[in-house]
Design a protein around this nucleic acid. Sequence first.
DNA 1: GTCAACATGATGGATGAA
DNA 2: TTCATCCATCATGTTGAC
Length: 597
Amino acid sequence: MAAKTFPKQAKPTCSMFSMAASSAGPSNSNLVQHFINMGFHERLVTKAIIESGESNTDMILETILTYSVLEDSQQVDQNTCHGSSNQQQCVHDDELSSDYDDSLDDSEIDDFVCLPNGMSQSPNIVTICKFHFYAFAEIVKISGIDIYLVQENGNSLPDNENVLLSLASMGYAVEEVSEAMERCGPDASVVDLIEFITAAQMAKTEAVFFEEEKPKIFVNMELKRKQNQEALERNKKKGPLAEQDDVIRLPNPMIGFGVPSICSVVAYRTLPEAAIGPPFFYYENVALATKGDWETISRFLYEITPEFVDSKYFCAAARKRGYVHNLPINNRFPLLPLPPRTIHEAFPLTKKWWPEWDKRTKFNCLKTTYGSPKLTEMVRKAVEKCGDNPPDHVKKYVLEECRRWNLVWVGKNKVATLEPDEVEMILGFPRNHTRGGGLSRTDRFKSLGNSFQVDTVAYHLSVLKNIYPDGMNVLSLFSGIGGAEVALHKLRIPLKNVVSVELSEANRDIMKSWWQQTDQKGNLVHLADVQKLDPHKLDKLIKSVGGFDLIIGGSPCNNMAGSNRVNRDGLEGEQSSLFYDYFRILETVKIIMNRRN
DNA sequence: GTCAACATGATGGATGAA
DNA sequence: TTCATCCATCATGTTGAC
């Protein structure tokens, strides 16, 4: 039986996935569809509605979950799978190692960081699988734990019986192993056997999967594009913005549904039915995008109204961003301790040198590039010439440069650019998060400039803590330096399985290093290119981890950002068009997870 | 080839005066 | 309501030092 994505320790209520169901009316078919969209099997839904009646959706959900637990328990008994009754928490070792390798090209896999994961078939078995290969070599016993060492080149073979037992204990079916041994011959290595088995599994999956899934996903994309194009043309015909009824306007103040200091601006919202999870999703991009981009993003992401938030309400720097998500919005809480909210709180030593005519209390957006030494020299000379009270035109020039490049006063008449570690601190990352490992100063600024503000994102994600007390499976797209992961970690939400997709090797290294340094107990899988994440690979990943609880990411803003004077082509730009891959992957995951449940 | 420094501006929303 | 002005903006391409 396929895994459920809800941890049974914290059953979600209907309100967690908005009030869409109750607002959709009591129509039986709508109600059934609603729960099917949440990822439950139609048979269970129908049974639960008959038993609970149509009026109480929470009761229906309780009943469905009860049936799910019962069925899972039965399934577990049949499989003699020791451990949790929830298959999500009972992923076999082969699903966490060899299946990844089977499904993914070596070139795309950066590394498998394999850690004791507590999800092994047997509680005293740990698989260590490193560097995109899965050749089983030998078992060693360390502190009473059986460790399967996995190396790129298989070592000398045990005898056939041992091979059979070993592969079986790694989670392969005895029938599969026997068939592989028969087909590959007596001299076949373990590598050959595993390759044969996984190839056979893949062939079976492809035969079923591609015929059914691809057309549906393709049609959906095309339909969305067509609907969006029609809407854009309708707006064009309407003329001025004032006459267009579905234009998204930026709020002022930009506080979304609320920020820690101004809570509960919006107490609840109604999500469109198609947007209701699982999985939860969270998409981010620059608020000040080119015209019509947010309307398009919203149309693709189930007509959800973006939540626009300026991170100046969370830290000492502005960061105006739009977030489209299907998360609950009640009972959010901020990370503690609260980060410094003003420049002087963040950098107290600058107060001594700060001229009274520089009224800044917040930095502007922390970007990917910073002012040059020559610039700070020019500012110093300009101020020095005028003494303590420069004329207005000098003040204007200096303030323009200070605002533009986020300069701070570090001495008499002396300004400086922020250092990378200072930017790390403002954005909520651990000190030295991007330092070392071969990264230049320029690279650090670039990576940081493209990242989340951790406190802001953590505030939005904080609602997940009670829903997933035992941890989450996360699909992190355009991960960058791991802002989402750092936010979840700071919220103390365990990261069970993280599939992180990030093109930049430097960024992947930063996150890998953070993962190791923070002693994560879960599994991290790194992939490089979202465009190569096709339905087949997603299917295998979902099978391996038991489904994703959260799909999070902010696609490239290069072509949408105001700073870009060269290729500001909006969502259709070369990099920013990867938004459509975010949508494609989200849709694909939803479809696969619905089918598996 | 890599890295840092440097020069470069259009866009769109906010604001306020007419 | 219209218009001018102000302002901020997850950036890009070229150059030169090494």
